[in-house]
Write a protein that binds this DNA or RNA. Sequence first.
DNA 1: GCTGCCATGTAAACCGTTACATGATTGG
DNA 2: CCAATCATGTAACGGTTTACATGGCAGC
Lengths: 183, 183
Amino acid sequence: MSILCYAADMSLRIALLGLLDATGPASGYDLAKSFERSLNHVWQAGHTQIYPELVKMAADGLVAVESEGARGRKIYAITPEGAERLRSWLIEHEPTGAIRSEVALQAFLLPLLDKESAIAVVERIRARLQQRLAVLECKDPSKFGRYALNLGLSQGRSGLAWADETLAELRGLEPADQPAPAT
Amino acid sequence: MSILCYAADMSLRIALLGLLDATGPASGYDLAKSFERSLNHVWQAGHTQIYPELVKMAADGLVAVESEGARGRKIYAITPEGAERLRSWLIEHEPTGAIRSEVALQAFLLPLLDKESAIAVVERIRARLQQRLAVLECKDPSKFGRYALNLGLSQGRSGLAWADETLAELRGLEPADQPAPAT
DNA sequence: GCTGCCATGTAAACCGTTACATGATTGG
DNA sequence: CCAATCATGTAACGGTTTACATGGCAGC
C-alpha cells in the first residue's frame, strides 16, 4: 500500500542476503549450491528463481556485481544497504508461524483409512523423517547455520517420536474401531 | 507429462476431499470455516482459493453439487471417484519433507546479529511458538484430527525446547564471541 | 571430438494472497 | 433501517516449479 510496504514476503531475498553476508561474495551458481548444501532444511530455491532475483536486488541496490570471472561468471557482493536490510528484517520481521505440511495433512486424514493402511502410511512417514534426520546428523554442528540445525534436529526427533507413538496406538486398536474398509 | 501425471501437488484438493469425506457434504463457505477451525495448523486456504477449486473438482468428477440451499448456498458432496482419489493419495503419495519456515530462516541467520539482538529475536520466536501451542492445547484431542493435533503439539513443544536451549546458550556467550555490532 | 560439469538465463504454468465486488438474510 | 454475518465470486499480483535453451571449459 504505502511506499513503506515492501512486497509481502521477501524471504528469498533475505536468504540470499544472509548467504552473501555470512560467506562473502558469490555467483548465482554458488548461491544455488549453498541453498542445496546448507539452507536446504530451512528454505529451498533453484537457480531459476535465484538469477532473476539477484538482478532485481542489484537494481534495488542491495547487492552489486563485484567482478566478472571466467565463463560469464558474475560475482555478487552484498552492499551496506543490503546488510542493513537484512539486519532490520531479522530484528523486526514477525515470522508467520503458518505451516503447510504434507506430512501433517496425511496425519490429519489418517482416520479415513483402515488400520493396515494407516500403519503403512505412518511407517512411510517415519522412514522419511528418519532419512531426513540422518542427513542433518551428518552436518557439522559448529558451522554457520547451527542454530537452525539444532532446530531441525529437535523437530525431526519429535516427529519420529510422534510416529512411534502413533504406530503403537494404531497397532493397539481393536479391529472394531476401524472404519469400514470401503466397499 | 503423460495423461497419468496429475498436477504436481494437489494438496488443496486432498484437504477439501478429506473434509468432505470426514464430515459430510458442505458448502464452500463451510469448508473455509473448517479450514480455519480444524485444519489451520496443517494447511491453510481462504475462500478465494476454495470456491474456484470446488468448481474445477466438480468438472473433474471428484465432487458434485448435492443441493442448493438458501441464499445461493451450494452444497458439495464427495463422489465415489473423489473418495477413491483421496484414499489413493493418502496411500501412495510420498510426502515431500520440504519445509519453508521463516522461523528456521531467522534461526539460521542468528549468528549475524549481536548477542542482544539475537536474544530478542529468539524471545519473540519463543513467544510466538508458545502462543501457537496454547491454541493447540485448547483443542479437543478426541476429535477427528487428533493425530495431526498430536504431531502439532509435539513439534510445538520441541520448538519451545529449542528456543530455551538457544536462549541459554546465547546468554552464556562471552561478549568476545560476538560479531562486531556493525558500524 | 565427445561427455560432463560449469554457468547463465527465459517462458509458461501453477499456486496462493490481497483487494475488490456483490447481494441475501438475520437481529437489534 | 442498519449492522453484522452469510455466501459467493473475480482480478491482479507475486512467488515457485518445470521445461526449455544456450554456451564455455576440462578431461578423456
